[in-house]
Amino acid sequence: MKVLVPVKRVIDYNVKVRVKADGSGVDLANVKMSMNPFDEIAVEEAIRLKEKGLAEEIVVVSIGVKQAQETLRTALAMGADRAILIVAADDVHTDIEPLAVAKLLAAVVKEEAPGLVLAGKQAIDNDMNATGQMLAALLGWSQATFASSLDIAGDKARVTREVDGGLQTIEVAMPTVVTVDLRLNEPRYASLPNIMKAKKKPLEEKTAADYGVDVTPRLTVVKTTEPAGRKAGVKVGSVDELIAKLKDEAGVI
């Protein structure tokens, strides 16, 4: 089985995000960018499937600016076999919307014919949480989102999903789109020897036009603002005082 893993280049989760002066978005100039952490988990899961003998080949694909090839190289250094870069923007501030990404991925799936698409549940930049679902719909495939465990047996996959209020286990028919959650696994480091080997792995470069997909944005960003600062807290002198405040002022107990 071939596994396709889409990976997105996003602002590093350690970076303190700053809003651009004109409010049009987040300032990404000279900011550290990394692979979306949920996508790292998806890459890790694909590698584990390969190590278990359930997958033969891992193809990673990234859609965005040319610099996304750094993200792909990282996925290759973790253990993916091959990479496809679809250049769809010139400006690092241009975000390709989920529907366009899903359409491009659907086109890649038609070409590559993977048995499984493993994706992050969402990208930590815009938190859209839509691409995996749209991709499954476009392909007419089953989908299992927010996976915290994944077991593949024959033409079925058993997926535990992290839903509000608990865990839900479902069985889906393969091929399927699985979007992964935080607790599925702990991604490995791209090891130094594998980093050196990654440069020899193939990275194919395409454009959105090659797939005939229009990536023009449909959404308009009206305004971007920093979150409101937290108000100063108060120190309480005793447990009794805390309970009283929670009862009388916060009204939570």
């Binding site: 750094e70 990282t74 791209a190 980093i195 990654a198």
Partner: peptide, 14 residues
């Protein structure tokens, strides 16, 4: 280079 950047990332993360 891409390799050097990844070496830095892995080492720093570790």
């Amino acid at each position: 280079s891409d390799e050097q950047r990844m070496i830095v990332n892995t080492t720093r993360a570790f």
